[in-house]
Design a protein around this nucleic acid. Structure first.
Length: 278
DNA sequence: CCCCAGTCCTGCGGGC
DNA sequence: TGCCCGCAGGACTGGG
């Protein structure tokens, strides 16, 4: 579930680690099937020890922690991963601990209930190879309207499915794809190659609007309560959703349509059939 | 090019 | 009341 706004909130929350030194790295939760950690923990630890954290960035749905060795620790939370400074939801699903020195936060934690996420350490070369040529598109907050249109204007896929493709644009997931198309007033099943330049501009503008608004509310914590910020506090954007998980309710914008739930590419899509005409 | 089903995994809520 | 099944969907893979 963590998409761009949730991952950006995690990134901002762990900013106090910048300038601190990594004093230890441990894998925890040995009872559960281990999450993917690359390279194996001893080599990972050796490359981190004594290194200073110089920057905490983000690309799409990943948090990037750059070290003074120019190695980068990449946290990819997938469905239920959290990057925390302290106080995880429980000890049971805690996966990795980084002991820090030289600042006020003694620990950086990776917690993941379902364990589908991963933590990897990349050299600059490995990082380039990982996301080079067509593997990961520009970040959703950095892409231009023209770039988005150029990447998709000849594709026949439904626009909602295309927005989920991380090779096109990085950071949009299932929840925000529906929200963005509602603000843009585009039907989620509309084929990319049938959209006009004006419609692409609306999709681009809505993307910026929705993602920035969601970041202001520190992301969406759904009813399962999994998503938390770096201090283990819930987000607030779930109270501002326009369509996601609101099937059967009247659309708040037009006050005419009833929010529909359909399935596209095996995932739920929500939209207002009145505001979002084909 | 695009679609679909399956894979990883856990917690929960609906239905019986 | 209690239990079981299916669903949630991010990224990836293999087959059509």
């Amino acid at each position: 579930m963590p998409e761009l706004p949730e991952v950006e909130t995690m990134r901002r929350g762990v900013m106090p680690i910048v300038g601190q030194t990594i004093e230890d790295v441990r894998r925890v939760a040995v009872k559960l099937r281990p999450i993917l950690i690359q390279p194996r923990v001893d080599a990972f630890r050796r490359r981190c020890l004594g290194r200073r954290i110089v920057e905490v960035g983000r690309l799409g749905k990943r948090v990037l922690v750059r070290l003074d060795s120019d190695d980068t620790i990449v946290f990819e939370p997938r469905m239920t991963g959290l990057v925390l400074l302290a106080d995880p939801p429980n000890r049971e699903h805690l996966r990795m601990e980084f002991s820090l020195g030289g600042g006020s936060s003694p620990q950086l934690l990776y917690w993941d209930r379902r364990g589908l996420g991963n933590v990897r350490l990349f050299s600059p070369d490995e990082l380039r190879r990982q996301w080079g040529e067509g593997r990961l598109g520009p970040d959703a907050l950095a892409i231009s309207a023209e770039q988005l249109r150029d990447a998709l204007r000849r594709r026949r896929r439904p626009v909602k499915v295309a927005l989920l493709d991380q090779a096109i644009v990085a950071g949009i997931g299932n929840l925000y794809a529906s929200e963005i198309l509602h603000v843009a007033q585009i039907h989620p099943a509309a084929r990319c190659d049938r959209l006009t330049r004006a419609q692409w501009q609306r999709i681009h503008a809505a993307t910026q609007h929705v993602l920035l608004e969601a970041i202001r509310y520190e992301g969406s914590t759904l009813s399962d309560g999994t998503y938390r910020n770096a201090l283990n506090q819930a987000g607030g954007y779930q109270n501002h959703h326009r369509v996601y998980d609101l099937a059967g309710q009247q659309c708040r914008r037009c006050e005419m349509g009833v929010i529909q739930r359909i399935v596209q590419a095996q995932r739920a899509t929500f939209f207002c059939p009145h505001c979002q005409r084909r």
